[in-house]
Design a protein around this nucleic acid. Structure first.
Lengths: 223, 223
DNA sequence: GACATTGGTGACGAATTGTTACTAATTCGC
DNA sequence: GCGAATTAGTAACAATTCGTCACCAATGTC
């Protein structure tokens, strides 16, 4: 039996994530009249010759007003679950946008992850996967920095980690680990944020460092 | 502009990995006469109504003789790179098979990862991605146990980790960390492997353990 | 100026990890 | 039989990392 390709219908479904008012939020767009649900993820088919991440950038830009700088695939689905465009196959892609980026595009709105309206079942699955992937890779990939503007305070950064991990972190430990990682460098700017001492601004500037050669961790087998 | 699906051609390309003679090996199949390369990954299109992982299981079984028990998507590609079946879109899936599983299917052969023959460019990319994903997730996912038979010695397990991480591990540290993880339990069998003291056999039997609530690690930003 | 609030760091004890060194059980060579 | 070689398994110590507490710094509020 010789293998052969098969024609199917394909969609790229984009989960734009951003920290909004102390919660991780996802950008949804109003569905066309007559749809079963009122909201959906931004989605479309890739154009001929357009890569999947390129398509995700275009789709995210249409909903957000500007293109996010970071994308990550969160899985391709071909189960029977319903897609708004009846696509056979969906490529789910997470896009990360800094806080306060994204002007108000007509028909697009942010929803906290814990408070999402009804979505087509496949979109619901993709959102859950995106959240899981982002949470799982937060310390192997510079995800957190993609959710912040180019310069940020260490408290901002810690806040993003706390959002992603959904738990409180200890300030001194967080900063010590960050120092040891050589991932950020201080700028000479400070930010006065109302009351309290002004905070120094940092930027993401990872230095290449020798592999630590740690032992195996057997971590995170949380199922 | 209303989003719409688009018809494309789809393939599932499977990277079957298994430890063979002290190296991680991938299963390739002989390409049909007239192809540009002599070897390719096992691949096919998913049948109507067949999930992607189901398709991967069927494809792997055809090349391996039996179906692997573990699959993981390693990315979906739609770049311009050439696919043996000229598919527009490829879903890359890694399948893990224990050592010594897989009878000799006509036209299928194992190749050590460092010694792979010429493949279609997209297949080459998928193999590299599969290796990277497996190496990156080895301590978040029970991947190593899927490369071993149901019972195994601790030296076997350490050997698999050393293959995946491509470096030597320290015996005492490895075992201490494994103990603390409650991932394996001893059986009452022992295996005498020629010379040396016989080793006790263990099985993978993860106990649910309380989340460790560790701090952030800032690990592995190795690019 | 006292106080509340947020930023930032030193230091200590606890926990984890890297390493050395040892004991145990087997096969091989003689 | 018996010592050398080989592989399994572990105790124990040293070095490092981590969690926490305590404190100092700089600002706004009253």
């Amino acid at each position: 039996m010789k293998p052969a390709v098969r024609r199917t219908t394909l969609a790229v479904d984009v989960v734009v994530l951003s920290p909004r008012v102390d919660a991780l939020a996802v950008l949804l767009v109003r569905a066309p009249a007559g749809s079963r649900e009122r909201w959906s993820l931004p989605w479309d088919a890739p154009q001929p010759g357009e890569g999947l991440e390129d398509a995700a950038a275009r789709i995210a830009q249409a909903a957000l007003g500007s293109a996010p700088a970071f994308f990550e695939q969160v899985g391709t689905l071909s189960d029977g679950r319903r897609h708004p465009g009846e696509a056979d196959v969906s490529v789910g892609i997470a896009a990360l946008a800094p806080a306060n980026v994204g002007s108000s595009v007509e028909g697009a709105e942010w929803f906290a992850l814990e408070n999402i309206p009804a979505l087509a079942p496949r979109h619901r699955t993709i959102v859950d996967r995106a959240a899981a992937v982002v949470r799982q890779r937060v310390d192997q990939s510079p995800l957190a920095f993609r959710l912040l503007p180019p310069t940020f305070t260490l408290s901002d950064l810690q806040g993003v980690y706390e959002l992603l991990l959904a738990r409180r972190l200890h300030k001194a430990s967080f900063r010590r680990a960050l120092q040891a990682s050589y991932l950020v460098e201080p700028t000479d700017e400070w930010r006065s944020e109302g009351r309290g001492r002004p905070a120094q601004l940092f930027r993401y500037a990872p230095k290449k460092r020798r592999g630590a050669r740690r032992g195996v961790r057997f971590d995170l087998f949380t199922e």
